[in-house]
Amino acid sequence: MRRAYFKNNWVAALMVAPQLLIVFTFFYFPTSQALYWAFTLEQPWGGGNTWVGFDNFTAILSDAYYWQSIWVSIVYAAGSTALAVIMALTLAIFADRQLAGYKLYRVGMIWPYAIAAPAVGLAFRFIFTPGAGMMMFVNQVFPDLWNPVDNGTQAMAMVIVAGAWKQVAYNFIFFLAGLQSIPRSLIEAGAMDGARVLRRMRDIQLPLLAPTFFFVLVINITDSFTDSFGIVDTMTAGGPSRATNLMVYKIFNDGFQGLDYSGAAAQSIILMILVIALTFVQFRYIERKVHYT
């Protein structure tokens, strides 16, 4: 690999300074603040604080609502990741087979990723609202079949669909790139060996897609833990009865609505540790099984 060397270290420092400044301001500074707050009792209106050690953590971990929030977060992560991966893979396979109009559709597929989460949430809120449109018709035919406002399972399903929809675009790009990097001659060899389309997909394309699959999985799970706030906030606000009260949303809710800064800070530290641990486990135990040379 080529490297650039600077004779003058000041020039190098100047080059990286803007990026470092951004990372510091928006990551290291808030993280260290949260870490500090997690071990203190912070006054909602500012002013002094008291060192309380692990009290915040014990309070959270003995709170049933917090465990419930972890559970719904896991459901959301599993649901939205599975849905996003399956949908993206299906679409990528179609695009890879170059069905009619695939070029147009390939570009169109990428757009949802550029839409901000709250906008996605708002759009799906309209689509899934029981009081208008498609779902109102469903309710007319089967009275009270669909009502995510008081049915927690339906609310969760709705949030999962919206979250997955946004993530599909991202996954699609990686799956398509992964599929297209499989040498054509392998598919042809499969055809000569008598394998038909679906068989080739199962025996050749999908196994060779495993590294991409793994990467997408890590990104999706992490993303569903950390980046789901906008969707929940616009669609359900954590409800009904905390059925969609994901960990990120609970942090926001406890911190900025409940003004329990210390508790929220402790929760965000736990969330961070959880995401780091998840990523570590995935790399440690799954990644080694998926590489071929």
Partner: peptide
């Protein structure tokens, strides 16, 4: 027919 490809086209996995 059976075919031998230029780059062998072996299934790497």
């Amino acid at each position: 027919c059976a075919m031998v490809f230029q780059n062998y086209a072996l299934y790497p996995h």
